[in-house]
Every structure is written in C-alpha cells, then in structure tokens.
Deep mutational scan, measured.
Amino acid sequence: MGFKLLSKLLVYLTASIMAIASPLAFSVDSSGEYPTVSEIPVGEVRLYQIADGVWSHIATQSFDGAVYPSNGLIVRDGDELLLIDTAWGAKNTAALLAEIEKQIGLPVTRAVSTHFHDDRVGGVDVLRAAGVATYASPSTRRLAEVEGNEIPTHSLEGLSSSGDAVRFGPVELFYPGAAHSTDNLIVYVPSASVLYGGCAIYELSRTSAGNVADADLAEWPTSIERIQQHYPEAQFVIPGHGLPGGLDLLKHTTNVVKAHTNRSVVE
C-alpha cells in the first residue's frame, strides 16, 4: 500500500471513529477524501466538511520552486461564519470567499490569524475590503508590521502568557507558548472536538522541520505538551499544512522538532 493511500485511509478511519463516538456532533463529509496538494491548482481553494458547521479550507501556493498546501478553518456561528487564517495570499483568499459563498452561503463576518507569517495573514486586506472584521493577538499584529505583512485590524486580548485561553464565538483560542513562531495560536472547536494546530503542528508525513527561522526550538516541545494537557479530548487535529489526523500529530511534531534540534547540535 502506497504512503499517500495509507495517509488518506488514516484520515478516513479517524473521521469514521469520530462519527461513531459522537453521532450528534459529527456529520463528516462523505463526498470524498481530504484534498491534497496535487489536486488543488494554485489560485483555487477546496472546502472539506469535518463536522456539522465545521470545515477546513485548503489552498496551495508556490514557494521556492515548489507547491505547498495550506489549511485553515471555518466555523459556523449562528447565521454567520468565523474564518481562521487566510488562504495564503490575496488571490487565494478572494477564491476562498467565493467558494464559501458557493458552498455554504453564509457571510464571513470575523477572521482570526493564528500567527504573523504570510500563509496566515496574506489576504487580510481582501477580507477587510469584503467587510470582514480581522483579528490577531497584539504580538501577531506587531510582528506582521515588522515583517511588512498585512496586519489584522483588531487585537485579541488575554493571550499574552503561555497557557492563556479565551473564548471567541464558537471557538476557544489558546496560546501554548512559542513553537513554530513566538505568537502562534491554537484554535479548538469544543462542539466538535476539532483542534486546529496551525503551523505549530505537523502532518504525519512530514519528517523535516522546514521553516524554523522564527521558531523557538527549545520551547516548542513544552508548548505541545500544554496543548495535549489542555485538549486531551480532541479527536480531529488539523495541521497548518497537509493531512489531518488525531492527537498523534502532536507527538510526531515533537519528535521531528527534537530530531532537528539534535542534528543542529551535532553539526
């Protein structure tokens, strides 16, 4: 069995187990497998329904001669939608809004960016022009300005110390501490036991640490421990890039980060 097929099978099995364990909360999309990078042309966006009122959005972007996937989250909030992270750029984010209108038909009224990198804030200006209120932590807003990236308009308070959590509509926002970046936030959907790890969490097929220019490698494993301790009931975990899975993604990420750190020390 090929690795790609095995990865998709694991996603399907995880979703099936969740649907059985929580039949009222989960209505997993039966329309197909989780979209992969090879299936999404740059400039297009796919939506994948995880649970009743919960979707991931998947886009792709060219970077350094390669094409990478990027995940975000959409959560229903009454007759409105909360968006977590842009679709990595203005063109993708405009396509995301169009796809949401086509498939869901509810307005996106608020959006949260989970850290300051372009795959999370690139497209904020498109959201703002569409009347979406954009939010991020003060740290993310400051770092985005320093980096020359787009800056969300509103500040999220109460997320300055490791372990801080605040309720934001249908989700809980959690600051686990520094990891992929010093400002990275985690998003949890309690009604569906869905954990969105953003770039602080890796997919299972990833074996290298990737972009760690703004990471705190020493603190990252401790931050992941905080996530595990705060959300032990999480059933569906979405990484910032690639295929979702279960809580095993947290341990896998820790292993990859520690291996990278150990290699760096040896070198």
Rank of each mutant, 00 (worst) to 15 (best):
V121M: 04
Y175P: 01
D52K: 11
T254M: 13
I17M: 14
G246M: 06
V121W: 01
P69Q: 15
A95I: 11
I84R: 00
A21N: 14
A51M: 07
D85F: 00
G197D: 04
D183I: 01
A90T: 10
Y34I: 11
V256Q: 05
W55G: 02
D216Q: 08
W220G: 01
G78K: 08
G177W: 03
P232N: 09
E172Q: 07
F116N: 03
G78A: 08
I40Q: 10
Q229T: 12
H117W: 00
S193I: 06
V189L: 06
L195I: 07
T153Y: 14
G43Y: 06
Y196M: 08
A259S: 13
V45Y: 00
D118P: 13
P23E: 09
R110N: 15
P239R: 02
P23D: 11
N255R: 13
Q49W: 10
R142F: 12
S62K: 08
S7K: 10
Y12M: 14
P221C: 05
P23S: 10
G72W: 02
F168M: 11
E33I: 09
R142W: 11
T134I: 03
A165S: 14
Q235P: 06
Y135T: 01
P176M: 01
A192S: 11
P232W: 07
H154A: 09
R263D: 15
V124I: 10
V124T: 10
S30M: 15
M1P: 06
L250C: 00
E39C: 07
V194G: 01
V28F: 06
L83Q: 00
I17D: 06
L97I: 07
D29F: 08
P239H: 01
L9D: 14
S161P: 06
I224M: 05
S162Q: 12
Y48A: 15
I50Y: 03
L156Y: 02
D118A: 10
S181Y: 05
F116G: 02
Q49C: 07
K102L: 11
L106C: 07
Q235E: 11
Y175E: 01
T253G: 02
W55M: 03
K4L: 06
G210W: 03
S139G: 11
S137D: 01
I104R: 00
A136T: 07
L73S: 03
A19W: 15
A25R: 14
E219I: 07
T153D: 11
V265C: 05
V171C: 02
G72R: 03
L159C: 05
N92M: 00
T261I: 11
S56M: 15
I238H: 02
D85Q: 00
V212F: 04
Y68E: 03
T140H: 04
L13N: 08
G65T: 08
D29T: 09
Q235D: 13
V189E: 02
T109Y: 09
L143S: 07
D29I: 09
L83P: 00
S113E: 01
T114N: 00
D52S: 11
F168L: 09
S22Q: 12
G2V: 08
T60N: 12
G105V: 07
R206E: 07
A25W: 14
V171H: 03
Q235R: 11
T261Y: 09
A144G: 05
G245P: 00
V237Y: 02
A19C: 15
S113G: 05
E172C: 03
V257C: 01
T93R: 00
A144P: 06
G242T: 05
W88M: 00
S70K: 03
T182W: 12
H241P: 04
P176S: 03
A192H: 09
S22D: 13
S56P: 10
L47A: 04
D79L: 09
V112C: 06
D64Y: 15
R226G: 04
A259F: 08
L250M: 07
I50T: 06
R226F: 01
L83F: 02
I186G: 03
N149M: 15
G245D: 05
P176F: 01
S223V: 09
Y135K: 01
Y34F: 15
T254D: 13
Y68V: 10
D248H: 07
G65R: 09
T182V: 12
V108W: 02
A165P: 09
Q228M: 14
L249S: 05
Y12Q: 09
D125K: 09
R76M: 11
A66T: 12
L143P: 04
L82N: 05
V237N: 03
G123L: 05
G177R: 02
Q228P: 07
L9Q: 15
G53D: 14
W220E: 01
K8P: 05
A136Q: 03
L250P: 06
L185I: 12
V256G: 02
S162A: 14
T140L: 04
S162N: 11
N92L: 01
V37L: 15
G72F: 05
S160R: 12
L156G: 03
L243P: 09
P221T: 12
Q61K: 13
H230N: 14
N92Q: 06
S191I: 09
V124L: 09
E233I: 10
E147M: 14
F168R: 02
L5N: 15
S38C: 07
L217Y: 01
W88I: 00
V112F: 06
A25I: 13
E33V: 09
E101M: 10
G43A: 06
F63Q: 05
T86A: 05
A111W: 04
V54F: 03
A66C: 06
G246V: 05
L97H: 03
L83D: 02
P244A: 06
S16W: 15
S137E: 02
Q229H: 14
Y68F: 15
T109N: 14
L159I: 10
R46W: 10
P170V: 08
F236D: 07
R110K: 11
S31I: 07
S70Y: 02
G65M: 08
G158S: 08
G123P: 05
V132N: 01
F174E: 01
G105Y: 09
Y188S: 02
K258G: 11
D52C: 06
T222A: 12
D214L: 02
L173A: 00
D85Y: 00
R226T: 07
D214W: 04
S223Y: 04
A133I: 14
H260E: 14
V257G: 02
T60W: 14
A179T: 07
S193P: 05
L24T: 14
G105A: 12
T93S: 02
V194P: 00
A87T: 02
E225G: 12
V265D: 13
L13P: 08
A87V: 01
L217N: 00
G148L: 07
V54D: 05
V11C: 15
S16V: 14
A98S: 13
V75S: 03
P69S: 15
N255C: 06
A15F: 15
D64W: 15
I74G: 03
T207W: 08
T254I: 12
A234M: 06
G148I: 04
P152M: 02
A200H: 02
A165Y: 13
A144K: 04
L97Q: 00
G210R: 05
A21V: 14
S155W: 08
V189A: 04
D183R: 00
S30N: 13
C199H: 00
P190S: 09
T140Q: 05
I201V: 14
Q49D: 12
I227F: 05
V112K: 05
